[in-house]
Design a protein around this nucleic acid. Sequence first.
DNA 1: CGTTGGCTTGAGTCAGATCAATAGACGTGG
DNA 2: CCACGTCTATTGATCTGACTCAAGCCAACG
Lengths: 251, 251
Amino acid sequence: MSIQSAFSHPHRPMTCQRCAIRSRSLCGSLSDDALGALSSISRHRHFAPGQIIVTEGEPAIFANVVTGIVVEKKSLSDGREQIVSMFFSGDFLGDARRVNSDSTAQAVSPVTLCAFDRNAFEQLMDVYPVLTQSVLDYAMARLENAREWMLLLGQKSAEERVATFLMRLAARQADAGCRHVAAQSIEPGMALDIPISRAQMAAYLGLTIETVSRRMTALRDSGLVAFKDARAVRLLNVDGLKAAAGDNDRL
Amino acid sequence: MSIQSAFSHPHRPMTCQRCAIRSRSLCGSLSDDALGALSSISRHRHFAPGQIIVTEGEPAIFANVVTGIVVEKKSLSDGREQIVSMFFSGDFLGDARRVNSDSTAQAVSPVTLCAFDRNAFEQLMDVYPVLTQSVLDYAMARLENAREWMLLLGQKSAEERVATFLMRLAARQADAGCRHVAAQSIEPGMALDIPISRAQMAAYLGLTIETVSRRMTALRDSGLVAFKDARAVRLLNVDGLKAAAGDNDRL
DNA sequence: CGTTGGCTTGAGTCAGATCAATAGACGTGG
DNA sequence: CCACGTCTATTGATCTGACTCAAGCCAACG
């Protein structure tokens, strides 16, 4: 799956210089110097679908997602689970400056991570301030996402939640590399691949599987979307979907 | 309300050196040098209860809360509102490295902020890496809080939400300066001051005013808490309340 | 006093949960 | 190839926790 460089070091499957996700990740803003340092403390790790990457309460991980989808979830003692974030290719996964992770990270699809040594990474943050800034940028972006989701979980109806989910997913799949353009490029008829199961959607949206399924059907019946199967959706009416998502503001 | 220094500069009501909240805030970890620089770009600002401090979409603010309570909220076009965080004395309020705020900040009580000039603050972050690290620490703490709240909003019942709110508030009021001790110091009989209205609790917990009121009554009737009035609560059974909050884990 | 704003309480409704059945996709082994 | 079990998704029937609508209480205040 991963793009191998002919010159790659055995434990570093590709040089960071020509990494497929570099421009979209943390590494995009680094100097060659800093990148080299980062490269030397990184190694690729693979995870099978469903495999746990870090458990809540265990030491935090620092890694870029190279390929695949990762979710982070928090759970209650009786088994109820809430997915708190989804990570796509290029996202930085890591609770910098926290000793232990506050949530469990799990691979949803086959995942390749570019993982960094924790201590070495923190030391590198001291040497290269730009790295700290990048990590801060990511943290702020995640915070903004978390807050948007709090609004969704606290105030939106089931149908608004499902519509919002589809729109966000579309924005994420449309931007593909440049997250600042986004939204505009969601054109009608766009095919959308839902990378998670209905159960995971439910855990992400604070609903049950049945309600997710029913609302998906309702969106189909009202002509906003069409689907080939449960995972392959086509957006028929983007404006309508945006309206169904509840907020008419920016993306 | 604020502790005035005899040596204070007209626009800087107290020297940062002897600021009442220094040890609990961002400033606690700074060198005298960095603190001096920060001091020179700060000034105190006052807000009346209900007054808006920043509006969603406007340029972000950088400030420490000196006294009072601030809430941040996000809203939908039809008026539904979700409070996404509460700031107490010593908390750092600011979306570093983001141009515009993603939420509206509002004073709940009379508030004094120690506000920093935005550009100067960002420049200072370049000069003093420790400042960036402190901001990152705050961002990670806020992210963890946001995630815990996502679990609450997505999975917990009304009664669990109210109980969790009371426990978190108690932890926050008990630690008073050192957030790492916390929780342990919540002793039975502890008096708790609820600094926000029922309507704000509802907006924070993703419930209606009526449900908040009913669940508060239910907690009283089951003997977990007692109250003098709507804002003055006494914790009678801390373990019971913890159980009612749904998660038996740390704090 | 009358008004106003915040809080509580009651009665009825409804959106989403729960319980239950079915269908399709996919493997596995006889 | 078909019978079988498993896993995921959909759909139906019913239930219930929280919302809605409405009334009443109390303290603050002009």
